[in-house]
Design a protein around this nucleic acid. Structure first.
Lengths: 142, 142
DNA sequence: TATTGTTATACTCTATAACTATA
DNA sequence: TATAGTTATAGAGTATAACAATA
């Protein structure tokens, strides 16, 4: 553990925190144009890439307690972007689906999210991108 | 723009969002052990690595509006971890400093934050770490 | 009994704007 | 006038626990 190592990891730590803010702040920026909060933006993006999702799965993806997700889904439903639908085969389960307006907004915002993240990592060398993807997937699946 | 490229960037995008949640969630986890919110944890960490900081600089680092920072500093001050001090040379400026308890808590939490971020990236090859640090610093300084 | 989701409560956080004090 | 910070307000997000319905 040399001086240089310590400094290096400290810098990387700071960079990672900055990156995380930057990424989650993006949802804020992008949502604002559609009169959505960051969480609502992330919610519709999470739904559109999965088409139809259980509440419980959304909670895992978005790191939200079920009660908090309930509230977020309430507000986004009131905003007219999503709908709840009961699973007739297991009536404990609720699916979240996009409305017509929701689909439009989600398509547009998700497109912009992807584009911006793309721009963000385009500056990284290809092998860093690959390595990063692999490691992050391993890390975040736990 | 081949199929593979598209899939690759989509995976990386998903990974980045996951990573960001993971990182900011860490502050939550770590803070909980000290009866701190995620924002309070990040605040004391941001202060300890800078010793004494202006409100305005804290706002930039933490991506907070000045009014929101004011509230966060209020709550953290009430919690007994920080103090405000006026700059006698420019009385518009307020510095945030740690109290004795704040210094202890901040040392402990910052240490754990660094350790966990360290574990997080330890799986990346050294040159990837370096490259990542450089690029992310460039990205987030804007 | 375990799982899925809702409701209730109290608090923190956020966005916006109007404000005070200093330079 | 510009800058640094506070206050006020309304809404959104969060943690926790108790609850209802289904399996």
């Amino acid at each position: 553990m040399t001086e240089i190592d310590t400094t290096g990891t400290r810098e990387l730590a700071k960079a990672l925190v900055g990156l995380s803010h930057h990424v989650l702040h993006m949802f804020n920026d992008i949502g604002r144009g559609h009169d959505l909060t960051a969480q609502q933006t992330e919610l519709v993006c999470a739904v559109i890439v999965r088409d139809r999702v259980r509440m419980s799965d959304l909670g895992k993806v978005m790191h939200l307690e079920k009660s908090n997700l309930s509230g977020l889904v309430d507000r986004t439903e009131k905003r007219g972007l999503i709908m709840r639908r009961r699973d007739p085969e297991d009536r404990r389960v609720t699916y979240v689906e996009l409305t017509e307006e929701g689909r439009q907004v989600a398509t547009s915002t998700h497109c912009e999210v992807t584009r911006r993240l793309n721009d963000l990592v385009a500056q990284l060398p290809a092998e860093v991108q690959l390595s990063l993807t692999e490691v992050v997937e391993k890390i975040t699946e736990s």
